[in-house]
Design a protein around this nucleic acid. Sequence first.
DNA 1: CGCGTAATGATAATGCATTCTCACGTAAGA
DNA 2: TCTTACGTGAGAATGCATTATCATTACGCG
Lengths: 115, 115
Amino acid sequence: MAVRRALEATRTPMRAQEIHGDAARVVPGIGLATVYRALKSLIETGQVVPVELPGETPRYELAHPHHHHHFHCRGCGRVFEVEGCPGDLAALAPAGFSVDGHEVVLYGRCTECIA
Amino acid sequence: MAVRRALEATRTPMRAQEIHGDAARVVPGIGLATVYRALKSLIETGQVVPVELPGETPRYELAHPHHHHHFHCRGCGRVFEVEGCPGDLAALAPAGFSVDGHEVVLYGRCTECIA
DNA sequence: CGCGTAATGATAATGCATTCTCACGTAAGA
DNA sequence: TCTTACGTGAGAATGCATTATCATTACGCG
């Protein structure tokens, strides 16, 4: 499927629109509806996961086995994966709260946008 | 202003709808438009800051001088403030990237929802 | 006491991502 | 070759938060 190939090519979380644009380069005339249909089934089969950042429309990336977070470039707006994760986040929560997950988003500029 | 008072009362980030509901208890018949107008001016004067969590509609909280993050309860959906912050997040970014900010969101259950 | 200005409430309009509709084309099967 | 069922593209429809519109109201001030 062209949608899957587009995601594999960039290896970075993409918006539905961007996926549509990339997929259209491979399959001209592909409809946006088809992209959403494909994403839906890829998500259901666990091959793709949605990535939501604060104040942004959802993006989609290939499913990964390992825990990771994201970096959002203020210059180009692209999102990159970030390996690693600060441990001990649960300790920050107020007493009596149970923590079962977390999200970390870094903001700044990627190498290209610093130049 | 009733909007400001509603935010002061709960001290927790609220959605526009929730603020409207609370404010209506003080000023019956207040319109949603007025809430948005008030929020807009409060934000412009720096008294209120918008809080955006992944996949959620924006919330608004009173401006704070100190750095903090948020805890999102999976039970009641409420958002709480979290003091403190794991340092050294910039080290996680790929080489050559500059980090100038970050967001951390904890997920779990608040004391009330654990019971 | 009367007018003008600015704020207000109700509601319509907007913007946007996502989903639905549906006629059409295609490919597999008989 | 004919039939049938499914996937597709195009565009309309939906849902939702936010913003604009606009007639009305209240208040300040002359």
